[in-house]
Design a protein around this nucleic acid. Sequence first.
DNA 1: GCCAACGTTGGC
DNA 2: GCCAACGTTGGC
Length: 158
Amino acid sequence: MADRCWLMKTEPDVYGFADLMAAPDQTDIWDGIRNYQARNFIRDDMSPGDKVLFYHSRCDPPHVAGAAEVASSAQPDPTQFDPASRYYDPKSSPEAPRWFMVRVRGIRALERTVSLAELKANQRLDGMLVTRRGQRLSIQPVDHAHFDEVLRMASEPT
DNA sequence: GCCAACGTTGGC
DNA sequence: GCCAACGTTGGC
């Protein structure tokens, strides 16, 4: 199966690309997803080797920071069973887990970050979900062409 | 920090 | 099953 491309959002104040690169084997779990659409992407569509744009939201300016890849198949997110976790979900059970996660491996920081404003200004990226107003999905499918274009932008000076 | 946009919840 | 109320996301 051909590798898919994704964009995954984080708030750099909470967990940024540098944190991923500092993790053992540059790999970490992507837990805490509590949105059904994003859950379905994780559970049904993500495979090891899929490419990932690592996006920093809630910062100024929001931007794509790095390239990563999906490093595992979907597994139940253990935080849903932990009453002490902020991601605890009393309606979930190990027999019928509601939430899933994958592991993600950082590949490299981009040569330069690419801001949301730049993404919006590039007509080649028309239709890219992250450029849409009000788009809150924390995991988004990305077209191959769009993925490559973002990397190309990062390889060129502003 | 504000607030528009959105997803979820729950009363009916 | 509708939809108002609520909580959250995330750009600005």
